[in-house]
Design a protein around this nucleic acid. Structure first.
Lengths: 148, 148
DNA sequence: CTGAATCCCCTTCGATACTG
DNA sequence: CAGTATCGAAGGGGATTCAG
């Protein structure tokens, strides 16, 4: 009876995969996962979401300070993209000097949760990945014509 | 006393975030999430993992056919990267003609599960995102309020 | 202070041709 | 069949400048 458990798991996974690639063998322009991943899968979006998740509400330069390493341009671009997708809300205060604040929308917060899941996976498995890389570097290289 | 539930949630999220960014305000070279995301967050890795998850074991050109749109070069590069990280195993059969088969490792399969989670999110929220994009395009744009 | 626009490097990717 | 090598095009991303 324990077999069925594992088997069920597998079946579910396969079903999910089929769902994703359904009617989409070319996978180039209609797969939601690609579309979505393309948005927040980049270097800066993750950090931006993470930082906004941490502080709730931040001004442009505060954000810039927290993600240091990011250029002004990339932060602008990133925020625009996130805003466009409804993940981040921008509030403009027409004062002198001007003030603009950013915060996660509900949608953005739900994505944050998923990202944290992923981060968990990354954290739990980073050791193993590092080990794999070392192993690969030492003996797994492309031209190692090993057995079989 | 019911407040605590939602509050707890928030606290946990915050804790997780702190964990991730711990000792890493610059976030440029040591954050596991960036490192890992950088690996499989690209366009092709996701598909490759998905396809291998679906078919278990595939030859180079089979894979190439399934991910059509990918160039030979990118498939090679992608597979190397995944192999290096221990997510994909490569088996070489020294025959004529040569045969090479790829499959997910256990690690790769555990990542597959996470990717499916993400895909779920993407799927469930893609409508909302599309709506947000339309709204943004029509009225949220940077310069909407004024004319040149 | 926010952030839009320009310039430019430099990586990345695709196409092609070539080896084992 | 499964790769590697090379080259040219495209675009990401940084520094700087300008506007509101």
């Amino acid at each position: 009876m324990e077999v069925t458990n594992a088997e069920n798991q597998k079946v579910k996974v396969l079903e999910k995969i089929e769902e994703i690639v359904a009617g989409n063998p070319l996978a180039d322009n209609c797969c939601p996962i690609k579309d979505i991943m393309g948005r927040f899968g980049d270097k800066w979006s993750v950090y931006t979401i993470l930082m906004l998740g941490r502080k709730q509400r931040l001004r442009f330069n505060e954000l810039k300070g927290l993600i240091s390493g990011i250029s002004q341009r990339m932060l602008t671009v990133t925020l625009r993209s996130l805003e466009e997708d409804g993940l981040v809300a921008r509030t403009i205060y027409t004062e002198i000097p001007p003030r603009v604040e950013y915060e996660l929308t509900e949608l953005g917060q739900s994505l944050l949760l998923k990202l944290l899941d992923l981060a968990d996976w990354a954290k739990q498995n980073s050791q193993q990945i590092m080990k794999a890389r070392k192993r690969y570097a030492s003996k797994g290289a492309p031209n190692t014509s090993s057995e079989v």
